[in-house]
Amino acid sequence: ALQPGLGVSKELEAVGDISITGIVGGAGSRDPVMLQSVRLSMVMKMADCICESISLVERFWENAAII
């Protein structure tokens, strides 16, 4: 499940059954100042890549079901 707030050391209730994690900072770094310095464009490009990957998998499954 997705753990909202984990990157800024907040304990919030888990959401969903599956999650995809995109790491934009150093591994293990939980410094909120570092997270604020990450460019939004980098996060948006990562989100676009994840969305496109999910879309490709869905199309693959649809084609495999036809065969």
Rank of each mutant, 00 (worst) to 15 (best):
K45N: 13
P4I: 09
I54G: 04
S55Y: 00
W61I: 12
E62N: 11
I50V: 14
A47L: 09
Q3G: 01
T21C: 05
K10D: 15
R59Q: 11
L56P: 00
S29Y: 00
E11K: 11
L56T: 06
I20F: 03
G22C: 12
A1Y: 01
P32A: 14
G25H: 06
K10E: 15
A1G: 08
A65Y: 02
E62Q: 14
D31I: 08
C51Q: 06
G26D: 11
I20P: 00
I20Q: 01
T21N: 07
A14D: 06
E62P: 01
V15M: 03
P4E: 09
A27H: 07
L40C: 08
E58C: 05
V33D: 14
I23L: 14
K45L: 10
T21D: 04
D48V: 04
L2M: 12
P32G: 11
R39N: 14
L40H: 08
R39S: 15
S19P: 00
A14Y: 01
T21G: 05
V43E: 09
G16Y: 00
A14I: 03
A47Q: 08
V43N: 05
K10Q: 15
A64Q: 12
S29P: 01
C49S: 08
S41K: 12
A27F: 05
M34Y: 03
E11H: 12
E58D: 07
V57I: 11
L6G: 09
Q3F: 02
M42R: 14
A47H: 02
Q3V: 05
M34T: 13
P4F: 02
R30A: 11
W61L: 13
S37P: 03
W61V: 13
M46L: 15
L12G: 02
N63H: 03
A65V: 07
I20M: 07
K10Y: 11
V38P: 01
W61S: 10
I18E: 06
V57E: 09
S9R: 13
V38T: 10
I66Q: 14
Q36H: 12
D48E: 14
I18S: 04
E11L: 14
A27L: 11
D48C: 08
Q3P: 01
I50N: 03
I66P: 01
R30S: 09
K10M: 15
G28R: 01
N63P: 00
F60R: 09
N63D: 12
D31W: 02
I66T: 15
E13S: 11
V24Q: 05
